[in-house]
Computed example of a mutant assay.
Amino acid sequence: MEDARLGVLGAGVMGTGIAVVAIGHGIPVVLVDVSEDRLADARRRVDTQLRHARLMGVVPAEGPVAALATATELEAVAGTTAVIEAVTEDAEIKAKVLGEVSRLVKTGTPLVSNTSGIPIGELERFVDRSDELVGIHFMNPAYLITMVEVIRGDRTSDETMTAVTGLLARMGRRGIVVRDAPGFVTSRLLHPMINEAARIVAAGVATAESVDDLMRGCLGHPTGPLRTADLIGLDNLADALRMLWERTGNASFQPCELLLEKVAAGHLGRKSGKGFYDYEKVLS
């Protein structure tokens, strides 16, 4: 990975955050998305996040920033040394994209799915070389959080794990390796807690602010579950909960009505300006 060149698929919240981490640590990136408008917006967000990351000391404050190229065609990643898929959390879409990319990159190129809970075993049958597929769950915001969950599939090779470990080290990230399962570790624990917090609010037991204050002050949660939900995106959270519910049959993963109502109303959290909290007042 000394001469790494990273392909990132998807210029959304996670893709741009991952790109910031890479270029901030001197790794050139090719960022791919479906439209030039999305890519132009992504470039602006990358510039802003890179400045923030440097101020926070999570990427080097000195030294050159690597190049960021953008493209609307998957073929642009053909010459990269690793590819991270960061498209929407939908198994069918991820499988399609990973399958297409696996036929473009050369043998020995790690294929990484950035997923919060879709089992790697579900995706591996769509790629040409399943031994080169691995999961990495970057936490949001990816450019600030320095620990990641690394998911080793049943067919992931030692060579792939070594390459991915080396890439993460170059990106200043510490990876904790876990075995493949729906939700892995973090989502399996965090998402039902958020879901139950929303149920508590819906039942009138406490406000969102009170739930978060108690979780921070009594149990040491850094932000509180509902502020965390707003950061994740309530639509993303609902999708992840449905995925876990379908794959485990555990009723605690069934998205609660309040969460679904907020998603239907377009109140998706920070990215929409309103979720469990109102961010429009802060931004205005």
Rank of each mutant, 00 (worst) to 15 (best):
T207A: 07
A82L: 09
V178Y: 10
L226A: 14
G135D: 08
K106S: 15
T248F: 01
S157F: 04
E209G: 03
L237A: 12
S130I: 03
L190S: 05
A208I: 12
M1Q: 14
G273L: 11
L123I: 01
V263R: 00
V105N: 09
T207D: 11
R270Y: 13
T109G: 11
D212R: 15
T146N: 08
R227Q: 13
T248R: 05
H191M: 11
I93H: 12
F138H: 00
P60Q: 07
D3F: 12
D90G: 10
E2L: 12
Y279A: 12
D131N: 07
G153W: 03
R188F: 11
L74S: 00
S187W: 12
F126E: 14
A71G: 01
V201T: 12
E36M: 02
D213A: 15
A61I: 13
P119C: 02
L6S: 02
I232W: 02
V65H: 04
Y143V: 05
M14Q: 07
A76E: 09
V127Q: 03
V20N: 11
E280A: 14
P64Q: 14
A86Q: 08
C218T: 13
M56L: 11
P222F: 13
V87N: 06
G12K: 10
L133R: 02
E159D: 10
G224E: 13
G266Q: 01
A198C: 09
K281Q: 10
G63M: 08
G99K: 08
A22C: 11
R51W: 00
L190Q: 07
K281P: 05
E89D: 04
L133F: 05
G26A: 06
M193A: 14
E261F: 02
S116M: 06
G224S: 12
C256H: 06
S35A: 07
G135K: 06
P60R: 11
A4D: 10
D278Q: 00
L55C: 06
G7E: 11
R155C: 02
G175E: 04
I232D: 10
D230C: 07
A265D: 08
A229P: 01
G121T: 04
